[in-house]
């Protein structure tokens, strides 16, 4: 066995992937952090109290892990799901009753709920330790945008099963957009946007822009599907990268000055 390990570790393929020996001594534990793509977001060394679980609660990391879980299970679900009135509900039924990968839907849904909770807890911890204070002000702002995007991800995904629960939750949730000041057709001040005829109607207002139609329908399903699977995840990925990068640039993990 030891011989086999030696053959593998000495092979050109292994060495081309991992350019240094196993991280078992101090030197290689430092080198691994600098040469591994997935590890290089971390610093090489860190304050011991800064990573104590009773201090950080690990909630930021947990949230990121849940985002990855949602991405992987979401991609698998996309193989089985068609966002049309004809197929959406039936595909979910099939995921529940037929496909052996159907458990992915459960993991995806509970993971989404859990992600909303862990984002809140992460934010709660950051507030309670005053970690948004200078020099980390702007990273807090990015975090708030990520919070909003997490809620929107969850909200757009809620519609996709196309059952009673989904459609009416989105109907109730998006009805508010009707009342957007000036831009909603039942909002205060929309009468003032006029070109001789009213500019803001149920066919042109903020809710219409959100739903792609006057009511939650096939256009909405398509719109929410794109938002859920492509648009928002792209934005989240970009902001996550900045969020993590700035943790390092703004002085590392927080702690007393």
């Amino acid at each position: 066995m030891a011989r086999l390990g030696e053959i593998i570790y000495e092979s050109q393929i292994w060495k081309s992937i991992f350019r240094h020996p196993m991280p078992v001594d101090r030197r290689n534990r430092i080198v691994v952090m600098l040469t591994n793509f997935f590890l290089h977001l971390h610093p090489v060394s860190i304050k011991k109290q800064g990573i104590a679980l009773s201090y950080t609660w690990c909630m930021g990391g947990v949230t990121f892990f849940l985002f990855l879980v949602e991405t992987v299970t979401g991609v698998l679900l996309m193989f089985y799901y068609r966002p049309t009135l004809e197929w959406a509900y039936n595909d979910i039924l099939a995921l529940r009753d037929i496909y052996s990968l159907g458990i992915m839907r459960e993991i995806h849904r509970w993971g989404a709920h859990a992600m909303v909770i862990t984002v809140w807890l992460h934010m709660y911890r950051v507030f309670l330790t005053g970690s948004y204070k200078p020099p980390r002000e702007f990273n807090w702002v990015i975090g708030v945008i990520l919070l909003l995007l997490t809620l929107l991800l969850s909200f757009t995904g809620y519609l996709l099963p196309w059952d009673q629960l989904a459609v009416w939750a989105i109907t109730v949730g998006s009805n508010m957009a009707r009342a957007t000041p000036i831009l909603g057709h039942e909002g205060p001040g929309h009468q003032f946007l006029t070109l001789g005829y009213p500019m803001i109607t149920s066919g042109t207002d903020a809710r219409f822009a959100l739903l792609g139609a006057r009511n939650v329908g096939e256009e909405t399903l398509n719109r929410f599907y794109i938002l859920h699977c492509i648009a928002i995840p792209l934005a989240v990925s970009l902001l996550l990268a900045i969020h993590f990068w700035r943790v390092r640039k703004d002085g590392g993990i927080s702690g007393p000055l």
Binding site: P23, M33, L39, S45
Partner: peptide
């Protein structure tokens, strides 16, 4: 939080 200023390796 200030008591322990020790630094540890991330790995």
């Amino acid at each position: 939080e200030k008591l322990d200023d020790e630094k540890v390796l991330v790995w």
